[in-house]
Design a protein around this nucleic acid. Structure first.
Lengths: 218, 218
DNA sequence: GTCTATATTCAGATAGAC
DNA sequence: GTCTATCTGAATATAGAC
């Protein structure tokens, strides 16, 4: 299967060919998710996926062309799911109140969403780990999740002129980057045990940097 | 080989047993670096490492217990090298000038160091990708590189009281997190093509947030 | 469509010659 | 210490019965 040919638009939801996706296909994807997220691409065998899905190996090949095809199908499904999960947290524009309160709410919600979801953590690890072998999948993830979150938050920051930000979108990237880096170093790299700065302390300082000019102007 | 038994102190430099490390061992480590960083742990075969190193497979097993032992030895060597490369950039305390200038210099140096070094990028990808299988190696990397950089920068920020920071160490973590996230999303996830915010714009805004109170007080 | 059984390749690791 | 040659298990993928 050619990687270049993979259709990767997250906006393209289930089409005709999958009006009623087969139970078997779903079972296979569920098994594949368990195994791929736990062991990575190369260390996962089709035998183990078949066992986890409760089907035989030839059935895998009946629904998916090969290991690469199954993997890319899984990543697309996960990206859609996680995209929806993250954006079901409501639009910041609709929130009422002081920016410092709103931003704290957003930051806590973001961290909670990621830290509570072991599957999402494993997914991010998988995407980064396999980004050498599957650059296209990594690009799509980055463009569809990271970028959209930054844009949305940037719009909110831009709407609060009293914050006197140089550049709301760049500030949003700082905001998101700080939280993502925290998750990676604390959870994925297991640096959380002997930790330097906990999440509350980090969030408080991040928001302080963003709102302090507005505060002192009062 | 037991992972729990791996000695992982970066401070422990070459000891007696390697007073004059064999050329063969170095060739093997060089070959292992090329293959492991290019393909990850599971997808790299001992045959390919042997070929890349220009030795035969039994020679690998003469110098290293098994694949895991070779991998952990490589990660330790790379961590030492990268640690030194990053900290050879001089201590921020010794720099003279306005904090905004110093911080910009540090940020540019950090980004340049990482972005120019393809090997370091591949190493970070490897560490994150294999952090499920080798949690101990990931923990050591996080504690010895990430944490030390944040502490060093935190000390500098603490020495500049005019910045009126709530918490210099947490601010340093924001600084480093922003840059690391940029590298991951732009370079490793190949989000750089259709990019939102470029590195100069990001750095300018990061420093603006940190120093703007001191600026407006003038 | 789904299974059992298998073809084939390739991996990690080693025996034994030199 | 280093090699050639090889053992053994496991991986991807498929042929052919039902």
């Amino acid at each position: 299967m050619s990687l270049a040919s993979t259709e990767m638009k997250l906006t393209k939801t289930n089409d005709l060919a999958r009006q009623r996706a087969s139970d078997k296909a779903e079972a296979i994807l569920a098994g594949a998710m368990q195994e791929f997220t736990a062991h990575g691409y190369a260390a996962t065998s089709m035998d183990r996926i078949a066992a986890a899905a409760g089907v035989s190996k030839p059935t895998l090949y009946n629904y998916f062309q090969d290991k690469e095809g199954l993997f890319t199908a899984l990543i697309q499904q996960l990206a859609q799911e996680k995209y929806r999960a993250i954006f079901s947290s409501q639009d910041p524009q609709s929130l009422q109140g002081e920016p410092s309160v709103i931003l704290k709410h957003i930051a806590k919600k973001m961290l909670d969403t990621i830290l509570q979801d072991q599957q999402l953590l494993a997914f991010i690890r998988l995407i980064i780990g396999e980004s050498g072998r599957f650059p296209e999948l990594a690009r799509v993830f980055s463009q569809n999740i990271d970028k959209l979150i930054i844009e949305l938050l940037g719009q909110y920051l831009a709407s609060r002129a009293e914050l006197r930000l140089l550049d709301p979108e760049a500030t949003a990237q700082i905001f998101v980057g700080t939280l993502v880096h925290f998750v990676i170093s604390q959870k994925m790299l297991h640096g959380g045990n002997i930790l330097l700065v906990d999440s509350d302390r980090l969030i408080d300082n991040l928001i302080y940097l963003i709102v302090r000019t507005a505060l002192s102007a009062k």
